[in-house]
Amino acid sequence: MRLITIALTALLLLIQYPLWLGKGGWLRVADFEAQVNAAHKKNAELIARNAKLNSEVMDLKDGTGAVEERARYELSMIKQNEIFIQIVGKGQATPPPPLAPRPEPR
């Protein structure tokens, strides 16, 4: 009777091995699900980034508003007859002064 119990326990363990550690085991499936979730998250981030870049490209192609905004914020350019005022908080470095306005073409 004792031998039958040991044999059945051994068979039960042999049956459980592929279920947990085999090719299609639960541990591997859980790992693959985590990888799929990470890929979906990365894809969602890339889709949002592409949509933002696409809208920026459309703005640059269609109008001058986006070009003017970039010139103001990235290049610190100002229009003629405009006054540039910048408030710098404590501990912030002072950025370089804005570029001088270009004369209008005649």
Rank of each mutant, 00 (worst) to 15 (best):
K52Q: 15
N37S: 14
A34I: 03
F32P: 01
V29I: 13
G25W: 07
K42F: 03
L46F: 05
K23M: 03
P98I: 02
A38G: 01
P96L: 07
A39I: 05
L21C: 07
K52H: 15
G25C: 03
W26E: 15
N50K: 05
G24Y: 06
S76E: 08
E104H: 08
I4T: 15
Q92P: 00
K42P: 05
G91K: 03
V29K: 15
N37K: 10
R102A: 15
K90M: 04
N43F: 15
Q86E: 08
P105N: 07
E82I: 02
P97D: 01
A39L: 12
R28M: 02
K79W: 08
E45A: 08
K61Q: 10
M77D: 00
P98K: 01
P103N: 03
L21I: 05
L60V: 06
L3V: 14
A71S: 09
Q80E: 12
G22P: 00
G91T: 08
G24S: 01
E33T: 05
M1N: 01
E33N: 03
A48N: 13
T5W: 04
I83L: 03
K52D: 14
A93R: 12
S76Q: 14
I6Q: 14
P103Y: 11
R70I: 03
N50Q: 11
L53P: 00
L27I: 12
I15H: 11
V57R: 09
E82F: 01
K90L: 01
H40F: 05
